[in-house]
């Protein structure tokens, strides 16, 4: 796994990242019907990534093995109006191809993202993932994260 390089993504990576972003959304779909992916998933993923790469408030890290993108991590910087520390770095999208998992690559990518987010002023790092995603829960627990804010959901029909 040493040969897998971790670096900040650039615009030329976008097309290769999209497939991973789509796979991640389909994985999320496994956890809850309210995460059912939309018809326009592919297009949405493309414009989402283009925007992230051009914007000033996102950090995009990729893992590359012999020219192949095997992992992607996208994080956003957000201001916290009422709390300290005042800038939060949110790990929002994180996907590693199956055969590259459980080899320490995820930890390396998260550490790289945190380093970059800190240099941009983030004093707090959070991570977003489906509540039922137990592998993610374990992963972040191991890295010292704890639950902070919960998002509860129900469909908007009349009760």
């Amino acid at each position: 796994m040493e040969r897998v390089k971790i670096r900040v993504a650039d615009i030329s990576d976008v097309e290769r990242i999209i497939e991973l972003v789509i796979r991640q959304r389909r994985l999320n779909e496994e956890f809850d019907p309210l995460l059912k992916t939309s018809q326009s998933l592919v297009e949405a993923a493309r414009s989402y990534m283009n925007e992230a790469i051009k914007g000033q408030r996102s950090v995009l890290i990729v893992a590359e093995d012999a020219g192949k993108i095997v992992g992607v991590l996208k994080a956003d910087l957000v201001d916290r109006l009422f709390y300290e520390p005042s800038i939060e770095g949110i790990l929002r999208d994180f996907y590693i191809l199956p055969e590259y998992r459980r080899k320490g690559l995820g930890v390396r990518m998260v550490n790289e993202a945190i380093k970059t987010l800190r240099s941009l002023g983030a004093g707090l790092i959070t991570a977003e993932f489906p509540s039922q995603h137990r592998i993610a829960v374990e992963f972040y627990n191991k890295l010292g994260f704890r639950p902070l804010i919960s998002i509860y959901a129900r469909q908007a029909e009349e009760s």
Partner: peptide, 22 residues
């Protein structure tokens, strides 16, 4: 094979098949 589109689904539902796919 490791790149099959249903790999994540297998990881959650049939980890034994998933591991052999890798």
């Amino acid at each position: 094979h490791p790149d099959r589109p249903d790999m994540d689904s297998l990881m959650l539902k049939n980890r034994w098949k998933y591991e052999l796919a890798i």
